[in-house]
Amino acid sequence: MGLFSSMRISGSALTAQRLRMDVIAGNIANADTTRVNGQRQPYQRQQVVFEPLAQVPGAAGGGLQVAAIVRDEAPAREVYDPAHPDADPTTGMVAYPNVDTTTEMTDMLSASRAYEANVTVLNSIKQMAQRSIDLGRA
């Protein structure tokens, strides 16, 4: 059905933005994680990569999906703290994750606004459908 397919497009975007939100939440939660799987190793920031849903050429609209969740390979933040259990025994430097909370916050805002935008689109689609059903009302 045409109407429900346009709802599915916005729905796929909502799902993708939710996943992005999950990834951002993980980044912020692990902003100070110095150990991964029991190893002395800083957490690496993760990012989502979006791509349009595979679509038939010539057909309208495609929706959104997450192509991959990739690791940010930027260098870790080194802080001198010899008392830290995960400090390098020789240099006393602790490798903190390459997570910048400010960047994550702006990403979060962006994800949340994108979600809102898609909800607005959905509401419009719904209203259009409602209006066309109202056509039948005398």
Binding site: L3, F4, M7, R8, L14, T15, V119, Q130, I133
Partner: peptide, 22 residues
């Protein structure tokens, strides 16, 4: 996802009002 549930219920509701009009 909550929006999945809402989308499904909304679809059912729209479909029902359409059927009601018919």
């Amino acid at each position: 996802d909550i929006h999945e549930v809402m989308l499904n219920t909304e679809q059912a509701s729209l479909g029902f009002s359409m059927a009601l009009q018919v």
